[in-house]
């Protein structure tokens, strides 16, 4: 089905613009047209569909489900809910406090908050359309595993010691946690459509320019930088390229959307999968503004530990995937 976009790009590049098929420039133009068209169309359709399905899921409902669950089941559920629950990133703090006040273990809350940006609909749709199903499933499974492990580790080191005092207090109290109530919202199909339309428009308006920018950079790399250069500089023989990629990705939180098309052209040039995965996940998960915001509810010590965990875990993953050569 995705072939349509290739035919469309063929037609525009070779028939409409009359570019010669063997020039590097035509190659880059073709890459740009095919990817922009493919990503934008798929984003519109899939974000709408995803939103229709999850319209009734919200943080309040998740909190209700997670309260009082077994700790280990909680890490798994927390990660899964984190990946599918829609919420505005400015809600991270209230959500964090809301979970803590319901005495959901801190690890479960962290598992939720870490997977949430890592597995979001935009990144998943883009990965799926550009890098294929195998890479996307791999990405999602690793994302969940990262969240679950982080949750387990945070509770293992008793991370709640390092919360802001008014939150740490919640876990020290002897009285039973307040019992939550949740009234499930019933939504008609029309209401779901309204929700999905609004969600899709908001996301589309926010990201379309980043998609175009990312694909443009990807197209330049595709057409202009020889594959041999990457083999020499970012190949799997340079062990240090993985941690460097992980670190370099930190400032890229600015827009993860722009990164995926660049990654596609890097992979095509032979940059190893592990390095690419580590870069991609680091860019999405380690967001400076998010970390600054979390400083209101936890000490820098806990935050630094979480950031260090992510960097170490991603480097290990990168090396592993480079070694097994998927």
């Amino acid at each position: 089905m995705l072939d349509w976009f290739t035919y469309f790009a063929d037609w525009v590049t070779y028939s409409l613009f009359k570019l010669s098929a063997d020039s590097k420039f035509a190659d880059a133009v073709h890459f740009f047209i095919e990817d922009t068209a493919k990503i934008l169309v798929l984003l519109i359709v899939l974000i709408y569909l995803i939103a229709v399905v999850r319209a009734t899921l919200n943080p309040e409902k998740v909190r209700y489900y997670l309260q009082g669950k077994n700790r280990f089941l909680g890490y798994i559920l927390g990660s899964i809910f984190g990946s599918v629950t829609p919420f505005c990133s400015c809600s991270s703090i209230p959500l964090f406090m809301g979970f803590v006040s319901a005495r959901i273990p801190l690890g479960v809350t962290i598992a939720f908050l870490l997977t949430s940006p890592l597995i979001n609909e935009v990144v998943v749709v883009m990965l799926g359309s550009l890098l294929g199903l195998k890479f996307t499933l791999l990405y999602i499974s690793i994302g969940l595993a990262l969240g679950i492990t982080a949750g387990f580790l945070v509770d293992l080191i008793k991370g709640e010691r390092w919360l802001a005092p008014f939150l740490a207090e919640q876990y020290k109290r002897d009285d039973a946690a307040p019992v939550l109530e949740y009234q499930d919202k019933v939504m008609t199909l029309a209401e779901r459509h309204q929700f999905a339309k609004k969600e899709m428009l908001t996301i589309f308006i926010r990201i379309w320019k980043w998609v175009v920018l990312g694909v443009a950079i990807g197209a330049v790399i595709h057409g202009a930088v020889p594959a041999a250069w990457f083999g020499e500089h970012l190949g799997d023989r340079q062990w240090w390229s993985v941690p460097v990629a992980t670190l370099l990705a930190i400032p890229m939180y600015v827009n993860a959307t722009a990164i995926v098309p660049i990654l596609e052209s890097l992979l095509l040039k032979g940059v190893p999968l592990g390095t690419t995965l580590a870069f991609c996940m680091s860019a999405v998960a380690v967001s400076l503004p998010e970390f600054m915001m979390l400083k209101q509810v936890m000490s820098s010590r806990l935050l630094i530990l979480i950031a260090a965990y992510l960097l170490v875990a991603l480097s290990l993953l990168g090396w592993l995937f480079n070694a097994v050569n998927f």
Partner: peptide
Amino acid sequence: DLQAIMEAGVVSTPA
């Protein structure tokens, strides 16, 4: 105020 938000039982904002 964060504490006030928590005490109101708010989980997602704006509420």
